[in-house]
Amino acid sequence: MQEVLKDVSKCAFCGFCEWVCPTIIASDNLRHYGPRGRVNLIYMALKDGIITEKTMEGIYTCLLCRACELQCPAGIKIASDIREFRKYLLEKGYVR
């Protein structure tokens, strides 16, 4: 997961990714339902070991549509990071 951590570390919290995200729009702007939120939830999990109910909610509501990736100034591969992180959650037994 080192590569994922490197990638999500690039997030500058600018939020430019959010306006195109279908799930943050559908959720009435819940931050963890958007790409900025998800990237930072992954960072929190991998850096500080914080994984909560809302982490799971954010990560598993992503549609992997990649609309956000076109907007990200730092070039973060958001969808593939989320996919890798889902594998990690599975391997670590957070989901079955």
Partner: peptide
């Protein structure tokens, strides 16, 4: 906890 941390950050 994660949600509060997420909303506790800035740019």
């Amino acid at each position: 906890e994660a949600l509060i941390k997420l909303y506790g950050k800035d740019a």
